[in-house]
Amino acid sequence: MGIPALALFSGSPLWARSGIQIPEGPMRLTRRLERGLKDGVSIVVNRTWRIDFAREERGASITGRQLSATVDAPKKLAALARIEETRPTDDMWPIHLSGDGRIVAAGKYTREEDFAAAVREAETMIAQRSYPAEVKERHRQYLAQLHNAAGSLLDDLPPDLFFPQSEQRETRRPVDLPGGLRGEFVMNFTARRAAGHPWLAEAERSIVTRIADDERHSSDRWTLAQT
Rank of each mutant, 00 (worst) to 15 (best):
K38S: 13
A150P: 00
S18A: 15
M92W: 05
D156W: 00
S42Q: 09
D214I: 00
F53W: 11
A191K: 05
L153G: 11
T89G: 03
W222N: 08
G59K: 04
S130W: 11
P23H: 11
R193I: 12
T48H: 05
E170V: 15
E56G: 13
T63V: 11
E137H: 06
R17D: 13
D52N: 04
T30I: 12
K75F: 06
L29A: 04
E167C: 01
L181P: 01
G2L: 13
D156N: 00
G99E: 14
A149N: 07
L224V: 08
K76I: 05
T63I: 12
H217E: 03
P174Y: 06
E24L: 06
R32Y: 06
L200E: 10
I103T: 06
R192Q: 14
I22G: 03
A106R: 14
L177N: 07
T30W: 00
V41L: 07
R182K: 09
P132G: 04
G151H: 08
S130D: 11
D213R: 14
A5S: 02
E137P: 00
M1V: 12
E121C: 08
V186A: 07
D160N: 00
P23D: 05
N188Q: 09
L6G: 04
T227R: 12
H147N: 06
I103R: 10
L67F: 07
R87P: 00
I51R: 02
